[in-house]
């Protein structure tokens, strides 16, 4: 079944005939070329998106490649129990949450403030230049960024150590991990994050600024009273999306910045999923952890969405 066409009962068919002037069957036949275009995307999506969804069930089975997804033995909650009683379970959850929350706390306001400032710039050419430079770090691979981090933090002549006159290998200091992670995250994505806010601000009627200026408002006052309210719905939307991702700290950057010695703070769920699944081939176990993560994310999304709906009438769903 590749093209799910809704079964048309008599009333709906009649209605649609009125709307489009032709029967459903005729319209499907006419548009056969469009359906043909969709065949490949649908097949790809079925195989590589939907079948893995079906495969999530191995979180409850003891998956053996020979027996496949459905044929492997059912073991219920065994993997989840193993996860909850793992020695580093508490550490992983705490690290993941702390990393996410602090990351959010520090990096969320930056694009907002930047966009408010840039929005007020009157020199169009220079504004373009500033924006171009701001976007640059976003286009740099995380691999290169981590390379840069290692260079700057190197104990043998990295810029930071030269400035403070020490020889500390920051990559091995657990307390430094979070700061490194967050600071580099801000560097990389704050500029890019201004796009969506600047786009929202562009909807402000310039007449409002004029009127405020005539009334004697300073730039700061104009920002506070015109721009900020305009941004609030988008801010809340972004906050909802960010909050629901709290438990899914990205794998890539943590993996690259992790060392044996800073695992106390850098041990997070996503890396554990990778290690258990890809490296140690504990497929079912890894899937169970991933499922746990996903479910928590969904719950968080719904909860935060409801709160935002009640409190500010903005919602994502």
């Amino acid at each position: 079944m590749s093209n799910p066409v809704p079964a048309a009962n008599a009333a709906a068919t009649a209605k649609k005939s009125q709307k489009h002037g032709k029967t459903l069957g005729k319209r499907i036949a006419e548009n056969w070329q469009l359906y043909l275009l969709l065949v490949i995307p649908v097949v790809i999506t079925l195989i590589y998106k939907y079948i893995p969804m079906y495969g999530v069930q191995i979180a409850f089975r003891d998956y053996k490649p020979a027996r496949g997804f459905f044929g492997s033995k059912w073991v219920g909650w065994e993997w989840f129990e193993r996860f909850f009683t793992a020695p580093n379970f508490k550490r992983m959850i705490v690290n993941t949450i702390k990393l996410s929350v602090f990351s959010l706390l520090w990096s969320f306001p930056v694009p907002i403030i930047l966009s408010l400032a840039i929005n007020q710039m009157r020199f169009k050419r220079y504004k373009r230049v500033v924006q171009t430079v701001m976007y640059a770090p976003h286009f740099i691979s995380i691999m290169v960024v981590c390379g840069m981090i290692r260079i700057f933090l190197s104990p043998y002549g990295g810029l930071i150590n030269l400035l403070i006159g020490q020889q500390i290998d920051f990559m091995t200091v657990p307390e430094a991990f979070r700061t490194i992670y967050i600071a580099s995250g801000i560097w990389q994505d704050a500029g890019w994050g201004t796009i969506i806010y600047l786009a929202t601000l562009s909807a402000v009627d310039p007449g409002l600024y004029e009127a405020a200026k005539i009334d004697g408002a300073s730039m700061f006052q104009r920002i506070l009273n015109i721009d900020v309210p305009e941004l609030i719905p988008m801010i809340i939307l972004q906050l909802i999306m960010a909050a629901s991702g709290i438990m899914s700290v990205g794998f890539e950057k943590v993996f690259l910045l992790q060392t044996q010695l800073n695992r106390v703070t850098s041990d997070v769920i996503a890396v554990y999923v990778y290690e258990q699944g890809i490296v140690d081939h504990a497929y079912s176990y890894s899937t169970a952890i991933g499922l746990f993560n996903t479910v928590i994310n969904i719950i968080l999304l719904i909860v935060v969405n409801q709160i935002a709906k009640k409190a500010a009438d903005v919602s994502f769903v």
């Binding site: 093209n3 799910p4 066409v5 809704p6 649609k16 489009h20 459903l24 319209r27 499907i28 548009n31 469009l34 969709l38 995307p41 649908v42 999506t45 195989i47 590589y48 998106k49 939907y50 079948i51 893995p52 969804m53 079906y54 495969g55 999530v56 191995i58 998956y63 490649p65 997804f69 999923v273 990778y274 699944g277 890809i278 497929y283 890894s286 899937t287 991933g290 499922l291 996903t294």
Partner: peptide
């Protein structure tokens, strides 16, 4: 194309994959 029959359902078929997925391991296995 707004005149494509079933457009809404096909869209939903695709959009669901933006929010739900099999995860790292099931995808790897496929």
């Amino acid at each position: 194309r707004k005149d494509l029959p079933g457009r809404k359902w096909i869209s939903i078929f695709f959009i669901i994959t933006m929010y739900f997925g099999g995860g790292l391991i099931p995808t790897y296995l496929v």
